[in-house]
Simulated assay, not measured.
Amino acid sequence: MKTNPGRFFEDYQVGEVITHAVPRTISGGERALYHALYPARHAVYSSDEFAKSVGLVASPVDDLLAFHVVFGKTVPDISLNAVANLGYAEGRWLRPVFAGDTLKAQSTVIGVKENSSGATGVVWVRTVGVNQRDEPVLDFVRWVMVKKRRREVEVLTVVPELATSVPADWLVVPSGLDFSSYDFALAGERHRWGDYAVGEVIDHVDGVTVEEAEHMLATRLWQNTSKVHFDVSQREDGRRLIYGGHVISMARALSFNGLANAQIIVALNGGTHASPCFAGDTVRAWSQVLDRAETGAPGVGALRLRLVATKGAAGALRDAGGKYLPDVLLDLDYWVLVPI
């Protein structure tokens, strides 16, 4: 058999290292397409001249674009037979990615746990993305629910211990970054690090209705081959499940209105895809400030933010019993760099 049906839950062993196929060279065209798919407007990722003015050699590609490329490399080996991608932890962006860089990825299986149904199980992996110089550009943990091939096969449970958040002193500020001469007018808003209070909720106001063609185009762009995003026969309801990363990028882009100076993502503390997203859903976003930290870089502070993608109202997250409200699509916890 020359074709690859993908791995099933019982095919994973804790400690196994998986080198993912097909390195990917990033082009400037890919950045332009990213900005066509999402209303992304953060200045560092839009202008070489603005990026140079804050100490970078050029405008990098969006942090989430780099994340999607690395994530996409893992799909044929980790989540081709996934039911759903469940969450993230301990993610860090370690250096910027520029047009011309080539990314590849490797994952280590760090946990497995069969579900009570016996039909699926959860697999945890730690993934590292590196550039053409074998320099790590990001790493993260994710866990995914995967179908079992044979119910009778028993798998020894190993659940990894994961940090609840990335400590502020673990954040990696890009080399040379300097916000001391930051141009707030060109960036689009005047709000500084000190203008944000812990606990503050920001309604990003705008919404975007997701179209079938756009989410499939985006997912193909990342070479994500998970069947549930393209093949209507994979779900009982006959619908294509929208890649969770599409929702993340949409919410992040919408957050520009109120967080235009939240320029560079440096860590992913955690994330939950609370409900599935389908074509025709209108995605809105709101943020909550969870923490603030100083960095050693001139003029650069860090904000820890909760980013929520929802079909409902800003500020609404859970019901009285602590469960996510049905309109909530995404609950993401991340660190971002802003000017002081």
Rank of each mutant, 00 (worst) to 15 (best):
Asn4Tyr: 13
His20Asn: 06
Arg24Thr: 10
Gly28Thr: 09
His35Gln: 13
Ala36Phe: 13
Ser46Asp: 11
Ser47His: 04
Phe50Asp: 06
Ala51His: 09
Asp63Lys: 05
Val69Pro: 00
Ile78Thr: 15
Ala82Gly: 13
Glu90Gln: 14
Gly111Asn: 14
Val112Tyr: 03
Asn115Glu: 10
Val123Met: 01
Val128Tyr: 05
Lys147Val: 04
Arg149Ile: 03
Arg151Pro: 03
Val153Phe: 04
Leu156Phe: 05
Val158Ala: 06
Pro160Glu: 04
Val172Tyr: 03
Ser175Gln: 13
Ser175Lys: 08
Leu177Met: 08
Leu177Glu: 05
Asp183Cys: 12
Gly188Leu: 12
Gly207Arg: 09
Thr209Ile: 12
Ala218Pro: 12
Ser226Tyr: 00
Ser226Arg: 00
Val228Asn: 06
Phe230Glu: 06
Val232Arg: 10
Glu236Leu: 13
Arg239Asn: 13
His246Ile: 15
Gly258Pro: 15
Ile265Gln: 04
Ala267Tyr: 11
Asn269Met: 10
Thr272His: 10
Phe278Glu: 11
Ala279Ile: 07
Thr282His: 06
Arg284Val: 03
Val289Met: 08
Leu290Lys: 06
Leu290Thr: 12
Asp291Met: 14
Thr295Val: 14
Pro298Gly: 12
Pro298Arg: 04
Leu305Met: 13
Lys323Thr: 05
Tyr324Val: 14
Leu325Arg: 05
Asp327Thr: 13
Trp335Leu: 08
Val336Ile: 14
